[in-house]
């Protein structure tokens, strides 16, 4: 049992609110179904990690996609930097143990990858997992410090670099997790599904049977 916690920051998969950048080519209802699959894959991977606490920082309400074993908290208001910093601080107030945060856009994540990332955090002050688009998919701190995250410009090609630079300045040591593709556009979705053919996300994408060419547009 790892004496730490994993926080999943997520939005309730409701049509028109979740994964809107998949529309087009997918309809808002399809985008929400893909979001629900990605979220469920993520939560089920987290549920299999031998970690003390699992927290879902949710914008919206839980649904039948929520497996047992999670404590739900609400997200704070504000930009993504404020919501991430707030979720980590709130989780740490609830359970004063190290915090590792991920989103709902990497359904290819496995319990093994999460476990090894938690082990990395146990050896460093922070752990950082870069995303292929220049952002990050995983961020952990032994003791969260909201100031590190606040003001990091989000959804930019240099988002991850800015965060990593800040971490290297503020922490004695920063461990790295492998780079992953996160699902933003339909092209990403196809890549991720190919990488994780076992996932609910891949099955849902296949069931939607979009013409092969549409996935290649960006």
């Amino acid at each position: 049992m790892i004496d730490a916690q994993i926080v999943v920051i997520a939005k309730e998969p409701v049509a028109g609110r979740a994964k809107t950048r998949l529309t087009p080519p997918y309809s808002p209802a399809q985008a929400a179904q893909l979001a629900a699959s990605a979220l469920e894959d993520t939560l089920r991977a987290v549920a299999q990690v031998p970690v003390r606490h699992r927290v879902l920082a949710l914008d919206g309400l839980p649904g039948s996609w929520l497996p047992p074993g999670f404590v739900v908290i609400s997200q704070r208001h504000g930009g993504l930097d404020e919501r991430i910093a707030g979720a980590m601080a709130d989780a740490h107030r609830l359970h004063p143990v190290p915090v590792m945060l991920i989103g709902m856009d990497t359904p290819q994540v496995t319990p093994e990858l999460l476990t090894s990332s938690m082990e990395t955090l146990a050896e460093h002050d922070a752990v950082y997992g870069p995303a292929a688009d220049g952002g990050f998919w995983l961020y952990g701190r032994r003791v969260p410090d909201p100031a590190t995250m606040l003001g990091v410009p989000m959804s930019r090609p240099d988002t991850g670099t800015v965060l990593l630079h800040r971490l290297r300045r503020e922490c004695r040591s920063v461990g790295l997790a492998p780079e992953l593709v996160d699902v933003d556009t339909a092209a990403d979705a196809a890549l991720v599904a190919a990488e994780a053919p076992w996932s609910r996300f891949a099955a849902m994408l296949e069931a939607m049977a979009l013409p092969a060419t549409a996935g290649a547009e960006r």
Partner: peptide
């Protein structure tokens, strides 16, 4: 079921 709910502009949420 008869329930009190929050006004339509309120964000539905779960708190600890």
């Amino acid at each position: 079921v008869l329930a009190d709910v929050a006004p339509p502009g309120t964000a539905s949420k779960v708190d600890r």
